[in-house]
């Protein structure tokens, strides 16, 4: 199976550390993804996104001047975003809860903590390929559905308009 390549599949790596960029590139190459574009920060990445239309994005969080969260928000919300639905995997050493939540609320599809493992990255890619998530648009958010599982025992809080309908039905 190895040795196969994807001629049409394109990936964008957004990472300010050149060593990490080459590491990620080699992991994608192992998968046969050879059309890999690189950007050193979110601003560069937005330009590349317009030019190259990648099928997936791997981004770091801490970058200057535009970090991974601001970049993700631009991809999802900017009126001239070329593809607001592109899957975004955030790969970062920041594992503090508030950072992870900020990334999720910006519209990141998957989150991967450093150090990078091949298994960790491949699992995230498999997730976006095998189980693409619905997107949710509301006044305060656009991005992949943040409710990843349907839980029959979930007791709230109920924030969405359609939840209110369910809520009233049950009363």
């Amino acid at each position: 199976m190895s040795g196969a390549t994807f001629d049409h599949l394109k990936a964008l790596i957004v990472e300010d550390n050149v060593h990490m960029r080459t590491l990620l590139r080699s992991l994608l190459a192992a998968l046969g993804i050879n059309h890999v574009y690189e950007a050193a920060d979110g601003a560069d990445a937005l330009a590349t996104l317009r030019d190259k239309a990648p099928d997936m994005i791997l981004t770091d969080l801490s970058m200057k001047p535009v970090d991974g969260i601001a970049f993700t928000r631009s991809v999802r919300l900017s009126h001239d975003s070329p593809n607001p639905y592109v899957p975004i995997i955030m790969i970062t050493g920041h594992t503090e809860r508030h950072k992870v939540e900020a990334a999720r609320d910006a519209g990141v599809t998957e989150f991967l903590a450093k150090p990078i493992t091949a298994q960790g990255l491949f699992l995230r890619i498999a997730e976006i390929v095998e189980r693409p998530r619905a997107y949710v648009r509301c006044a305060s958010y656009f991005g992949p559905d943040r409710r990843r599982r349907a839980d029959d025992n979930y007791a709230g809080p109920w924030r969405r308009h359609e939840d209110l309908a369910k809520d009233l039905e049950l009363k």
């Binding site: 099928d55 593809n83 639905y85 390929v129 693409p132 998530r133 619905a134 997107y135 949710v136 648009r137 509301c138 006044a139 305060s140 559905d145 007791a155 709230g156 809080p157 109920w158 924030r159 969405r160 308009h161 359609e162 939840d163 209110l164 809520d167 049950l170 009363k171």
Partner: peptide, 22 residues
Amino acid sequence: RKSPPHKHARAIKIMPGAYPVF
């Protein structure tokens, strides 16, 4: 279920396929 204390957001759900997927 308890009613939420805050205003409900009107959310539109876009299913895979309605947007481009692999």
